[in-house]
């Protein structure tokens, strides 16, 4: 299986889907001539032309609205956000139009559209450009929210998102784009709404998604040396949550740590905790612990930025807490 970077996997998915279905087009800032701010659309303009790879002005609300309209009229737009921080400007189109059209038109209108771009902290980009905003979108009925961690999932889920009949919000990551992994060639579609056990374990379940998966993996490897077997469940889709997979892992290990980059209040992890307490109460041997981004605005200083984010030592500490193996 070829090893690709996350951005290359996305590029492959876009090209394959544009090849497969001529209603699919890509629009966003610098997706064309510049080949994408993060080079996800490398070569696509040359290959598919300016009608299907559209450079948009710096006007998120405007081009997102164009995309929603195009989807209503039968096309299958992929709207690239340079980062999700900028998409806050476009939120009205995503939330008030894309998410609601099917419902408000009594099924007469459809909105098969993908909004995608990087979320989370990049690196010394300060408060306005370092936000993990997936919980915001996961809040809205009518949207699907996905956040793949690996190149293979990125390809397979983007393909599934483009083929989906409903609006899908996809969180990638500036720090994910260069990560390499094996990616199946050709028709590799990962169904939305399915979590994935990325690592089997028996003592504790670490539930996570997106870039945090890599910290969890690092923590799990270290824990293994201490004789603690951690299972990692990558949610991949945040809306709808894969309840079965979540309940299955807690039934197996009885202890859960949730790791998410975003802020603690009303985070996706909080909803997972709610699910656990209501549907897996009798399977819990310890209170669920969450490792989240600190409840503060992100600092520019590198040391403060690092301190504000989850990392392997924080995850290890949380695991020991739910295993009642805390030191001291």
């Amino acid at each position: 299986m070829p090893e690709l970077m996350y951005r290359e996997a996305l590029n492959q998915a876009l090209a394959e889907e544009m090849e497969r279905d001529n209603r699919v087009f890509l629009m966003g800032e610098e997706v064309g001539r510049y080949n994408g701010a993060f080079k996800v659309s490398q070569g696509l303009l040359d290959r598919f032309g300016s009608a299907r790879v559209v450079d948009a002005p710096i006007s998120e609300l405007g081009f997102t609205g164009l995309g929603v309209g195009a989807a209503m009229m039968g096309l299958r737009p992929v709207i690239e956000m340079m980062t999700w921080n900028f998409a806050i400007l476009a939120m009205d189109q995503i939330v008030n139009n894309a998410a609601k059209l099917r419902h408000m038109s009594g099924g007469q209108l459809r909105c098969p559209i993908v909004f995608r771009g990087p979320g989370g902290a990049g690196g010394r980009l300060s408060s306005q450009h370092s936000q993990a905003l997936e919980a915001n979108y996961a809040h809205f009925p009518g949207l699907k929210v996905i956040a793949p961690a690996t190149p293979a999932d990125a390809k397979g889920m983007l393909k599934a998102a483009i083929r989906d009949e409903n609006p899908v919000v996809m969180f990638e990551g500036e720090r994910l784009y260069a990560i390499k992994g094996e990616v199946p060639e050709g028709e590799h579609v990962v169904p939305l709404g399915k979590a994935d056990v990325k690592r089997e374990g028996k003592d504790v379940s670490i539930i996570t998604w997106s870039r945090m998966y890599y910290f969890c993996e690092e923590a799990a490897q270290q824990l293994e040396k201490e004789g603690i077997s951690a299972e990692i469940l990558d949610l991949r889709t945040l809306r709808p949550l894969d309840e079965e997979a979540i309940l299955a892992t807690v039934r197996k290990t009885n202890r859960v740590v949730i790791v998410e980059e975003g802020w603690p209040l009303a985070g996706v992890g909080a909803s997972v905790v709610d699910l656990l307490q209501s549907k897996a109460f009798d399977h819990l041997d310890a209170p669920v612990h969450r490792v989240t981004g600190l409840d503060i605005n992100m600092s520019y200083a590198a040391n403060l930025e690092a301190a504000a984010q989850p990392d392997a030592p924080k995850i290890i500490a949380a695991v020991k807490k739910v295993l009642y193996r805390e030191e001291g």
Binding site: N254, D282, H283, L284, D285, A286
Partner: peptide
């Protein structure tokens, strides 16, 4: 004090 699992 007992965890829900321990009780079960």
């Amino acid at each position: 004090r007992a965890s829900p699992l321990a009780k079960k």
